[in-house]
């Protein structure tokens, strides 16, 4: 199959999934039985006002019509207005997306940087001391609530040791953020050669990034180990061993053959970590998309919740798509599943 054909076919499979996603997002709020009208109208509204808002929102129409309208709006990029910020939800979210992506990038990057070598090493000596230890540690990593870890880190590194800045926002309060190029204070600061700003952004990044890295490394270790073990018992590797190839070459072979499934796993994990990351943002007052979404959930801003949930789902679909394309580029034999 040529690459373009693969690309087209793979992209087409996204469409039914997207429809399903929009449907679930739509139902999410509708099944709730909560009345957005009451929220908008306030406690002193008259019946006439209620009816007016109801009509304005299209809630007087049958459910299937509402769904079609919602789908149409979503396709035009209209996600409604948040009643907390009084602005279009899409604008609110676009503003914050980069802020979250920066954290996600560093966090998962560091997690993979720790997780993959550790998992591989554990697999080369299954049930050895290293394997046993990392297995228990990674299970522990699975069990630690992210938000609690963040709070403990703030206590230790801010209150006790005074190494970290206060956990509010992404840059010191007294420092002017650099001009926006990418949206990441760290990179923008470096680009504009504003070292103070870049340094302040870095110090603010460290704790949340470590927090996210710890949580993301645990499943990566576990999965890398499992994948590498499977590759180790494959015929290819057994044949290589039987031929008497040196251990270094065998390990290289194992790494090469596990790269694709590991990449796929990290890709799927990124999508799951978006939820965890929201909690980190919440604790560190990061001001990104995750914090926005959690705030909307807690405060009951359902248009924003809907938009947020939809955005996360779209992000997952996109990540799966990109991972599949990369995998196909690395290994064109891989089939369309």
């Amino acid at each position: 199959m040529s690459f373009t054909r693969f690309l087209v076919r793979r992209t087409l499979t996204v469409i039914p999934l997207l429809l399903g996603v929009v449907f679930i997002t739509f139902m999410l709020i509708r099944v709730g039985g909560l009345d957005p009208v009451g929220q908008l109208a306030g406690p002193t509204a008259t019946q006439a006002e209620f009816d007016m808002i109801r009509e304005e929102l299209g809630l007087d129409k049958p459910l299937w019509q509402q769904f079609l309208i919602y789908t149409g709006n979503v396709m035009q990029g209209d996600l409604g207005e948040s009643w907390l910020s009084n602005r279009p939800v899409l604008d609110d979210m676009l503003e914050r997306a980069v802020i979250s992506l920066e954290l996600l990038f560093w966090g998962v990057g560091l997690g993979a940087l720790i997780g993959i070598p550790v998992g591989l090493r554990a697999a080369f000596r299954p049930n050895g001391k290293f394997d046993q230890t990392t297995r228990v540690l990674s299970l522990l990593g699975f069990s630690i609530p992210t938000y609690w870890l963040g709070l403990v880190m703030i206590f230790v590194f801010f209150y006790l040791l005074d190494w970290a800045p206060p956990a509010i926002g992404r840059i010191g309060l007294m420092i002017f953020p650099p001009d926006t190029v990418t949206g990441s204070y760290l990179i923008d600061g470096l680009l504009a050669a504003e070292w103070e700003a870049a340094w302040s952004a870095t110090t603010h990044l460290i704790l949340p990034v470590i927090c996210l890295a710890i949580v993301s490394a645990a499943p990566i270790i576990k999965q890398t180990r499992a994948i590498a073990l499977e590759v180790l018992s494959s015929e290819t590797v057994r044949y290589a061993r039987a031929c008497g190839l040196p251990e270094r070459t065998v390990r290289k072979l194992v790494f090469r053959n596990s790269a694709v499934p590991i990449l796929t796993f990290v890709g799927t994990e990124v999508t799951g970590l978006v939820g965890t990351m929201s909690l980190i943002e919440y604790v560190f007052a990061w001001g990104g998309l995750g914090q926005y979404g959690l705030n909307a959930i807690v405060r009951g801003d359902f248009t924003a919740v809907q938009g947020y949930v939809l955005a996360l789902a779209l992000f997952s679909v996109l990540v799966f798509l990109v991972v599949d394309i990369i995998v196909h580029l690395i290994e064109p034999r891989s089939e369309l599943s």
């Binding site: 679930i24 999410l28 909560l34 996360l312 789902a313």
Partner: peptide, 15 residues
């Protein structure tokens, strides 16, 4: 496709 924590949060908040 939805992160489980967020889905659980949103559904509990909505229902």
């Amino acid at each position: 496709v939805f992160p489980s924590i967020i889905l659980a949060l949103a559904v509990v908040a909505a229902t």
